[in-house]
Design a protein around this nucleic acid. Structure first.
Lengths: 249, 249
DNA sequence: GCCAGATTAAATGTCAGACATTAAAATGTA
DNA sequence: TACATTTTAATGTCTGACATTTAATCTGGC
């Protein structure tokens, strides 16, 4: 592991990269302890604060964890699916908001991916997944539910559908796509009428999943996507007309 | 933005979280300059090194960038799709290797997602995408190509297919799934015979994409997935039998 | 001999102050 | 005005110190 002290790049960034590469290459294995900060400082010929900045960079990516105390230090972290989920959701959310990704593009991506899960989910869903879906459908029918809570329940419902595929990698990849949509979905105001419509579709989907009818799930997801986009467009249109009114007034 | 100095959590982690939350909430907008390190240290009532550790954490997630000089400082970074790609690939790769995800599970996820792109790609692919696919097919047919180079070309081919869908969000989500497979694919030794087979399938896929025949693309991807898994299994089997031989010897 | 408590040691966490380096802005000059 | 120089404000880095945490070790009493 070496760095170039003459490079214009931050020393801490270089050190972080060197260690990260070692982890990716398998030179440092899970739960292995890195040398102490003092030893690393000595090795790279930099000061301890510089090493610390490098370690914090790695910690931010969940690549290492640190423990204080006598036998403490920095350890290569086993990257868990849950940790990766959280990061992916944050990244995806920011990506959508900062790049002004349109509702349609995000929605298309989400449903395309979700439909990819449908056949596997039809085949492998467990009673647990079905139970979660039914429970969320029930929650979505409750009067007095805020729009935020409705959206959150929607996310849980769809995650159950995705998790039903019984493929952790698939679930991980989709977590970002589904959850990153939530801020966009939250802009929609769900009327009693539209909630009824969505709950009906969700019920049909749950039935189809229970019946292990992949074709039907796919068709229902297409319908749900179309309906969601219709709702979003009507919100945009309503805003537009309000704007025009204010202009003429 | 506040932190709790009595918490057992690192101050730098708390500060990073506070700033990250502010960015996600939209309180800090793209390209906005954060207060200087000295000002932040003052605000949070900590020392400059502590603030710096927090900023490095955010830099590691591409949430901020820093500039030196008189008008320098830390700026909220526009998270670009390319930056997010890179991070997602790193995370996905580690996730697969550290959690001992089986070839079959990763492969299933990858092809499920890729098939989700197929209909869109059939509809929207441009001459550029087709050209890339043809070029990579040609490269894959060259004799003397290393297995690594063959795999890399395979990734480029499949990314062209995915990008053909013309949905940046979809491309982003799939980058991880496709590229993270590469280390696993690299374990396979591609014989001349198997390369021929793959090139033939790739050619058929390119033809189907050009003909905008979504159904055919889907069927070919299913075949390609089956063949890839077959190859992987034969490698595993070969290794197993060699092992047994050594044992008895 | 063994256990509980005190001590020690080794590591990270934090701080203070200094200097180096960078790059833009302000200033001076032909 | 155009160009070279100086100033300035910021990040990057270093040194050295102290605080805190935690496990291992030592020590005294039973």
């Amino acid at each position: 592991m070496k760095i170039d002290p003459d490079s214009t790049v931050d020393l801490s960034a270089q050190i972080a990269k060197a260690i990260r590469d070692a982890i990716i290459a398998g030179d440092l294995i899970v739960d292995q302890r890195l040398p102490s900060e003092a030893e690393l400082a000595d090795h790279f010929d930099v000061s301890r604060p510089t090493v610390r900045e490098a370690l914090k960079r790695l910690a931010a990516q969940s690549l290492i964890r640190t423990q204080r105390g006598a036998t403490g230090g920095a350890f290569v972290n086993r990257l868990r699916f849950e940790d990766a989920y959280a990061q992916q959701v944050t990244t995806s959310t920011l990506l959508l908001s900062m790049n002004a990704v349109s509702f349609d593009v995000a929605c298309e991506a989400r449903y395309a991916l979700e439909r990819a899960c449908a056949p596997l989910s039809a085949e492998r869903r467990t009673p647990d997944h079905l139970a979660t879906m039914r429970a969320e459908i029930h929650r979505q029918g409750q009067p007095g539910l805020t729009d935020e809570a409705f959206c959150a329940s929607d996310v849980t419902f769809h995650r159950a559908l995705v998790d039903g595929a019984g493929n952790k990698v698939l679930s991980y990849q989709l977590a970002g796509a589904v959850e990153a949509m939530q801020p966009l979905m939250n802009m929609i105001t769900f009327t009693a009428r539209s909630r009824e419509e969505i709950v009906a579709l969700h019920t049909d989907i749950a039935d189809a999943v229970e019946a292990q009818d992949a074709t039907r799930i796919d068709a229902l997801l297409v319908k749900l996507e179309a309906y969601t986009r219709l709702l979003a467009h009507s919100v945009v249109a309503a805003r537009q007309s309000r704007k025009n009114k204010e202009k003429t007034a």
